[in-house]
Simulated assay, not measured.
Amino acid sequence: MTAPATETRHAAVLGSPIAHSLSPVLHRAAYAELGLADWEYGRHEVTEEALPGFLAELDASWLGLSLTMPLKRAVIPLLDEVSDTARAVEAVNTVVWTADRRRVGHNTDVPGLVAALRERGVTGVPHAAVLGAGATAGSAVAALARVGVAEVTAYVRSDARAEEMRGWGERLGVPVHTEPWRRAAEALTAPLVIATTPAGATDELAEAVPERPGTLFDVLYEPWPTPLAAAWTKRDGVLLGGLDLLVHQAVLQVELMTGRSPAPLAAMRAAGQRALAGR
């Protein structure tokens, strides 16, 4: 992963849409804290169809990419190697290049989720509910398995998604039961709820928050708080947000891309908080 000594190292986040991404703020804060003046981190609007051509045009100064939707699965056939974690959940959110320019895919969402939960003391929960069934939902199931959750119920919108979630559970070693989305309000009684849906999808559930809720991990960070998150806080439930996930997974990305460890978690979190406050 070493570029020529006199050359600027490049990394970036790719996706569509991408203008909202906080990744540049977090990674640049890390570079500043680590004294990596020869590193630049950008943002590029790249669709699934454009991804192969974009990758083909990158020169040896490029050492890392962060990927968001819709690229986390689309990139897999374009890689030379995929980590076991990324393969298990069929989602790559990080690409790094080796010294011989082999493309290697990783998933830092899973350990990022685990780190965020452990930071708040959430471990050993007997049962959890997952709202949604996209790439982040798969990562959530993997994370739940790692923190010792014995059983997961996923609330999904289609039979195909339900089958996919059950398959992830089988591969990851945690039973996943599925329920139709129309019953999603039932999820809120679980001791741990992870909402992985797009903005607006859980707004209708805000009125269904129980009197004594457990822990909600809503992976959105903009808009924030979501109506569900706000209602959860009013009921004094434990709340984690998308910035928690974003920072913890970005810490791991910085370490993979730059080879510097540990990445500066506190500085990255503070930069993200300032950026969100200014929006």
Rank of each mutant, 00 (worst) to 15 (best):
P111Q: 12
G105M: 10
A116T: 03
H127D: 14
V130C: 04
N107E: 13
E119V: 00
T123H: 12
V96Q: 10
R120F: 10
G121Y: 09
V125F: 00
R103I: 09
E119P: 02
A99M: 02
V125D: 04
L131E: 03
D100R: 14
G112N: 04
V122I: 15
R118D: 06
T98F: 01
R102H: 15
A116E: 06
R118H: 10
E119K: 12
R103K: 14
E119I: 00
A115Q: 11
R118F: 00
T98S: 15
V125T: 15
A115I: 00
V114R: 11
A99F: 02
V125H: 02
R118Q: 15
L113E: 11
A116H: 09
A115G: 03
R101K: 13
T123P: 00
T108H: 05
V122L: 08
V125C: 01
T94C: 15
R120Q: 15
T98N: 07
R120P: 00
V96M: 11
V114C: 13
A99V: 14
H106K: 11
D109T: 06
A99R: 15
A128M: 05
H127L: 14
A128I: 00
R118C: 03
R118S: 07
V122N: 03
G112D: 02
P111V: 13
R118A: 09
R102W: 11
A128K: 01
A115R: 13
A115L: 11
R101W: 09
T123E: 15
V104F: 02
T98H: 06
P126W: 11
H106V: 00
L131D: 04
W97C: 01
D100P: 07
L117Y: 06
V114N: 11
V114I: 14
L131R: 09
G112Q: 07
D109Y: 12
V104W: 07
R103L: 14
V95D: 01
V122D: 03
A116Y: 06
L117H: 08
E119C: 00
L117S: 08
T108Y: 05
A99I: 01
T108P: 00
T94M: 10
A129K: 04
A129E: 05
L131H: 08
V104I: 14
L117N: 09
D109Q: 09
G121Q: 13
T94S: 11
P126M: 08
L117C: 10
A99G: 03
R102V: 00
R102A: 11
P126G: 06
V96D: 11
W97F: 13
A115T: 05
V122P: 12
G105P: 08
W97V: 01
R103E: 04
E119T: 05
T98D: 09
T108G: 01
T123V: 15
R103T: 03
V122W: 02
V114S: 12
V104Y: 03
A128S: 04
L131A: 09
A116K: 06
V96Y: 06
V125P: 02
A115S: 14
R102I: 01
